[in-house]
């Protein structure tokens, strides 16, 4: 039996009277790449924030590594990349990396090594001394990803990590995800890009704050009698053809 690393139990969240998540339950196993798929406004980001501890559910609990969130000692083991790039644009990429790695207690030679490793992963090594203000949108996105990888988290939570990144780089980033997975990391990505969805081990379809289907890409296609994930997405999305 695989170990459940993430366990979302009956989580509801509402902002004022507006319910965003409705009694959502989901388990994610160690070493999985799990994709959260759904139209914008479905509640993907809200769900992900409950997991990293940036928000607390109105009802229900999130358990990560069998500890109830939020907990600082668990936060240390999570790498989170939000939808906004969240970089200090006045500083160079190296200074950004240096700062965030210090927050995770990396120092000295180990810090240096990790910085050059993550920059190689996102193919930005030659731009490391440039101020982030001079970066293009895609470069910022990749640097943001690099920062999330710095402390070798065992759980990576990535909110639309490849928006604004061209297909070639996207492929190399997914390669990096697979390498991390082989090393034992668990990865949760939110996306609405279909070719990405297909690369996930399992998918969770979210609509209007409810988890309407969970399964491997093949299972979901089968259940909906679709030819592709895109079609399955449309079926679950309510666009009955």
């Amino acid at each position: 039996m695989e170990k459940q690393i993430v366990s979302i139990r009956n989580v509801s969240k509402s902002f004022g009277k507006q319910p965003v998540l409705k009694k959502l339950s989901l388990d994610i196993a160690a070493g999985e790449i799990f994709g959260l798929l759904g139209p914008s406004g479905a509640g993907k980001t809200t769900l992900v924030k409950q997991l990293v501890g940036l928000d607390t559910p109105s009802e229900g609990e999130c358990y990560i590594f069998e500890e109830k969130m939020p907990k600082l000692k668990i936060i240390e083991r999570i790498g989170y990349m939000a939808q906004s790039d969240a970089l200090y644009t006045e500083l160079t990429a190296r200074e950004n990396l240096d700062f965030f790695s210090s927050l995770y207690g990396l120092k000295g030679a180990r810090k240096k090594q990790r910085i050059s490793e993550v920059m190689a992963t996102v193919s930005l090594s030659e731009h490391i001394n440039k101020p982030v203000a001079n970066y293009s949108g895609g470069m910022k996105r990749r640097l943001s990803l690099a920062i999330a990888l710095l402390h070798e988290p065992s759980l990576l939570i990535l909110d639309e990590p490849t928006v604004g990144i061209d297909p070639v780089l996207r492929r190399s980033i997914w390669q990096a995800f697979n390498e991390l997975k082989e090393k034992g990391a668990t990865i949760i990505v939110t996306t609405h890009v279909m070719d990405e969805a297909e690369k996930c081990d399992r998918l969770g379809m979210i609509r209007d704050g409810e988890l309407i289907a969970v399964g491997t890409p093949a299972e979901l296609q089968e259940k909906t009698h679709s030819e592709s994930i895109e079609e399955a997405f449309l079926v679950y999305g309510g666009a009955q053809s």
Binding site: Y80, A82, L103
Partner: peptide
Amino acid sequence: TTGTLERLLSSPLR
């Protein structure tokens, strides 16, 4: 507004 505060708080920073 740039989201860096969120990033800081998703790290173990108190």
